[in-house]
């Protein structure tokens, strides 16, 4: 069994978001880049599955420019066996999925995150599954290998389910898929330098969406304070002023 983990390279979650060029592009000056938190958990679960036996190889893949390589190296340091970088700036989810479809065909299980923390696309995993004509399950909070099938926990609106599904499968993962992300150990970091990171040329594809511009939320009015001794006043304000009770 071969597993592919999709890795999105995103700004650290504490980044102060700013835009340049008349709010037409994200200002990446001074930004620290990390593995998208869901992808980090997906990789952690892939490692656990490999340790449990039956997984021959874990590959990580990213669509991006050379600047994303430190993020892929980190994934190798966590324990992936090899990496693929499709050498082209990511445009939109459709474009990214088209690129990934070229390199993802031969895997039995593909793990994608439910969303990238930058553009919150909620799209690449599902699009890729459709392009490859693979099965897919979204909102996956647990997965294990059961012979030639997968046992999957998924969240549904109003509960959760335990499923069994045949591969090849794209599992789109969220909270619960692994407890804590694995941090690379020194030995892992040393080994990662020697692991293959294959750079693949992009294929011709057209994006279907374009980002016109960005807006920051309107600054909040100052918080209206109520005295601790007079907490009841808060309920009156919520009722009469804010009209939410």
């Amino acid at each position: 069994m071969k597993i592919l983990v999709l890795i999105s390279n995103v700004p650290d979650t504490t980044t102060k978001v700013r835009f340049t060029g008349d709010n037409t592009s994200f200002d990446d000056a001074g930004v620290q880049w990390i593995i998208n938190p869901w992808d980090e958990l997906a990789l952690t679960r892939a490692m656990e599955l490999k340790e449990a036996g039956g997984v021959d190889k874990i590959t990580v893949a990213n669509v991006g420019e050379k600047t994303t390589e430190p993020t892929l190296r980190k994934a190798l340091a966590v324990g992936a066996d090899d990496a693929i970088r499709v050498d082209v700036p990511a445009r939109d989810a459709y474009f990214v999925a088209r690129q990934l479809a070229e390199v993802a065909k031969d895997y039995d299980l593909i793990l994608a995150g439910i969303e990238a923390s930058d553009y919150n696309g909620n799209a690449v995993g599902g699009m890729l599954a459709e392009m490859l004509d693979f099965n897919s399950v979204s909102a996956v909070s647990g997965i294990s290998i059961d012979g030639d099938k997968f046992t999957v926990n998924r969240e549904i609106d109003g509960g959760s389910q335990l499923l069994s599904i045949t591969g090849p499968l794209v599992a789109i993962v969220q909270k619960g898929i692994a407890k804590e992300p694995r941090i690379p150990a020194m030995r892992g970091i040393m080994m990662a330098r020697k692991k293959p990171l294959n750079v693949v040329a992009a294929v011709d594809a057209h994006e279907k969406t374009s980002y016109v511009n960005y807006e920051l939320p309107a600054p909040k009015a100052a918080c209206k304070m109520v005295d601790e001794e007079n907490a009841k006043e808060l309920i009156t304000l919520l009722h009469e002023e804010a009209k939410v009770l």
Partner: peptide, 10 residues
């Protein structure tokens, strides 16, 4: 976008 830190017109 950016998990609620901004909006984009797409």
């Amino acid at each position: 976008v950016f998990t609620g830190k901004a909006f984009a017109n797409v």
